[in-house]
C-alpha cells in the first residue's frame, strides 16, 4: 500500500507540474465561461443554457484530461526509461500501475472539482443559490473519467501514446453511441444477426449509463436505481480493465 500511495503522490506531482493540464484547465474554464455568452444570445431560460454548456464542457475536458494524461504518464515512464530505476526498487509491477492509476484519479478529482466550482459560481451569479444538484451529474461524470483513465492506462501498457489516445478516444465514442444498438436490436428480427448485435452490446461499454446531464439541467429526477447501477457498472468495468492492464504489464519486457 505504501508503494502505491508513494507512486500515486509522485504521479499527482508530475501531472500538476505539466503545462498540458493547465492548458486543458484554461480551455475548460473558458468554455464554461462561454456558456454565459451563449445564455445572453438565447431566448428562454438562461440558467439552463449555462448549466447545459457548463456540464458539457466539464464532460469533454474531463474526458480529454483522462485520456491525454492517462496515456502519457505510463508511456512516458517507459519511453524516458524512468521505469528502470523504479522497478529495481522493492515494488511489484501491479503496485506501479495501481499507483499511477490512483495518482491520475486524484488529479481528475481535483480538476473536476475546480471545473465544477467555476460552474457553480457562474450559476450562483445568475440565481444567487448554490445548485448542488449539479454535483450529481458531476459525480457520474467523474465515474466516467475514472473508467476512461483505466482504459487509457491499459492501452498505454502496450502501445505508443498517440495510438493509445486514439484507442481511448474510440472507446469514449463507442461508449456514448453504443446505446443505439438497443434500438437496432429492437428493430431486428430474431436470428443469429440479432444475437451477434446483442453480444456486441453486452461487450461494448455503455457510457450513457453515467450521463445524467439532461436530467440535472432540466430538473428531472435521477432514477433511484441509477445511483446503484451507474457506480456498480463503472467500478466493475474499471476493475476488469485494470486487471487486464496488470496482466499485460506483468509479463512485459522493458528493453
Amino acid at each position: 500500500m505504501t508503494a502505491i500511495w508513494t507512486i500515486a503522490r509522485n504521479t499527482f506531482k508530475e501531472a500538476v507540474r505539466d503545462r498540458v493540464l493547465y492548458l486543458l484547465l484554461f480551455f475548460a474554464g473558458a468554455s464554461i465561461g462561454l456558456s454565459q455568452v451563449l445564455a445572453l444570445l438565447t431566448v428562454g431560460d438562461r440558467v439552463k443554457i449555462v448549466k447545459d454548456v457548463g456540464l458539457a464542457a466539464i464532460a469533454f475536458f474531463g474526458a480529454l484530461m483522462a485520456i491525454l494524461i492517462g496515456t502519457g504518464l505510463v508511456a512516458k515512464e517507459i519511453e524516458k526509461r524512468t521505469i528502470f530505476t523504479l522497478l529495481a526498487k522493492p515494488i511489484r509491477r501491479h503496485e506501479f500501475l495501481l499507483g499511477k492509476f490512483a495518482g491520475l484519479v486524484l488529479v481528475l478529482l481535483v480538476m473536476t472539482g475546480l471545473m465544477s466550482l467555476v460552474l457553480l459560481l457562474l450559476v450562483f451569479a445568475h440565481t444567487l443559490t448554490v445548485d448542488l444538484k449539479l454535483l450529481a451529474a458531476v459525480f457520474f461524470l467523474l465515474l466516467e473519467f475514472i473508467l476512461l483513465t483505466a482504459v487509457a492506462i491499459l492501452f498505454s501498457c502496450f502501445s505508443t501514446p498517440i495510438l493509445s489516445s486514439l484507442y481511448s478516444l474510440g472507446f469514449y465514442l463507442i461508449g456514448h453511441f453504443s446505446w443505439s444498438l438497443v434500438t437496432l436490436i429492437k428493430k431486428m428480427s430474431p436470428g443469429p444477426g440479432r444475437t451477434v448485435v446483442r453480444g456486441l452490446h453486452l461487450l461494448l461499454p455503455d457510457l450513457e449509463i453515467l450521463n445524467y446531464k439532461t436530467e440535472v439541467v432540466h430538473g428531472l429526477p435521477i432514477p433511484a436505481a441509477a445511483w446503484l447501477a451507474g457506480p456498480a457498472y463503472a467500478v466493475v468495468y474499471t476493475a476488469v480493465v485494470l486487471a487486464i492492464a496488470v496482466l499485460v504489464f506483468r509479463r512485459r519486457d522493458f528493453v
Binding site: N10, E14, D18, R81, T82, F84, T85
Partner: peptide, 14 residues
C-alpha cells in the same frame, strides 16, 4: 539492492 542505470533518466520535474 541499489541500482544506477546507464545514461540515467529521472523525473525531470522533481
Amino acid at each position: 539492492l541499489g541500482f544506477l542505470p546507464e545514461n540515467p533518466y529521472f523525473y525531470d520535474y522533481l
